Amino acid sequence: MSTDYQQARTALGARLRELRTEAGLTVRGLAAGCGWVPSKVSKLENGKQTATTADLDAWAAGVGRPEAAAELKGRLAGLESTYRSWRRQLAGGHRAVQDALGAQHERTAMFRGFSATVVPGIFQTPEYARSVLSRYADLHGVTRDVEAGVVSRMRRQEGLYRPGKRYRVLVAESALHVRICPRSVLADQLDRLMSVNGLSTVELGIIPLTADVRIAAGDDFWIHDDRMVIAETWHTEMWLDSAEDIALYAKVWDALATAAVDGRSAHRIIARARASLDLS
Score class of each variant (00 low, 15 high):
residue 200 S to T: 09
residue 219 D to L: 04
residue 227 R to D: 09
residue 232 E to I: 00
residue 219 D to Q: 12
residue 222 W to S: 07
residue 231 A to E: 02
residue 200 S to H: 10
residue 219 D to W: 06
residue 188 D to P: 04
residue 199 L to V: 08
residue 189 Q to W: 06
residue 201 T to I: 06
residue 190 L to M: 13
residue 222 W to H: 08
residue 188 D to K: 09
residue 217 A to V: 13
residue 195 S to A: 15
residue 199 L to D: 11
residue 213 V to E: 10
residue 233 T to I: 00
residue 232 E to T: 04
residue 197 N to P: 03
residue 230 I to N: 01
residue 188 D to I: 05
residue 229 V to R: 01
residue 203 E to S: 10
residue 231 A to C: 01
residue 223 I to P: 04
residue 224 H to W: 09
residue 195 S to K: 08
residue 220 D to H: 02
residue 206 I to T: 11
residue 222 W to I: 13
residue 212 D to P: 08
residue 192 R to N: 14
residue 215 I to T: 12
residue 193 L to A: 09
residue 195 S to E: 15
residue 226 D to F: 00
residue 218 G to D: 15
residue 220 D to W: 02
residue 198 G to S: 13
residue 214 R to L: 13
residue 189 Q to S: 09
residue 212 D to F: 11
residue 218 G to I: 10
residue 198 G to R: 15
residue 209 L to M: 15
residue 201 T to F: 02
residue 225 D to H: 06
residue 211 A to E: 07
residue 228 M to H: 06
residue 192 R to Q: 15
residue 212 D to S: 14
residue 234 W to H: 03
residue 202 V to G: 08
residue 232 E to N: 01
residue 216 A to S: 14
residue 197 N to E: 10
residue 190 L to H: 10
residue 214 R to D: 07
residue 233 T to M: 00
residue 227 R to G: 08
residue 187 A to V: 07
residue 211 A to M: 07
residue 219 D to M: 06
residue 207 I to A: 05
residue 215 I to P: 00
residue 192 R to H: 15
residue 193 L to R: 06
residue 227 R to A: 10
residue 191 D to G: 14
residue 205 G to H: 08
residue 231 A to R: 02
residue 196 V to S: 12
residue 199 L to Q: 11
residue 222 W to P: 03
residue 215 I to K: 13
residue 232 E to H: 02
residue 210 T to Q: 12
residue 217 A to Q: 13
residue 206 I to S: 07
residue 207 I to Y: 04
residue 203 E to D: 13
residue 232 E to P: 01
residue 194 M to L: 13
residue 210 T to N: 11
residue 208 P to V: 10
residue 214 R to G: 14
residue 235 H to A: 00
residue 201 T to K: 04
residue 196 V to G: 12
residue 234 W to E: 05
residue 193 L to D: 12
residue 211 A to H: 05
residue 200 S to N: 05
residue 234 W to L: 04
residue 218 G to H: 12
residue 225 D to G: 02
residue 212 D to Q: 15
residue 217 A to I: 11
residue 230 I to K: 01
residue 202 V to T: 08
residue 235 H to Q: 01
residue 204 L to I: 06
residue 210 T to C: 08
residue 229 V to M: 01
residue 208 P to T: 09
residue 188 D to T: 12
residue 226 D to A: 01
residue 201 T to C: 03
residue 231 A to G: 02
residue 216 A to E: 15
residue 194 M to D: 14
residue 229 V to I: 05
residue 228 M to Y: 03
residue 200 S to G: 01
residue 201 T to P: 01
residue 190 L to P: 11
residue 194 M to N: 12
residue 199 L to E: 11
residue 213 V to T: 15
residue 198 G to Y: 09
residue 200 S to Y: 04
residue 234 W to T: 05
residue 217 A to R: 08
residue 203 E to H: 10
residue 223 I to S: 03
residue 211 A to W: 04
residue 227 R to P: 01
residue 231 A to K: 00
residue 189 Q to P: 12
residue 223 I to Q: 07
residue 232 E to M: 00
residue 217 A to W: 06
residue 210 T to D: 15
residue 200 S to L: 04
residue 211 A to Q: 07
residue 205 G to Q: 08
residue 213 V to C: 09
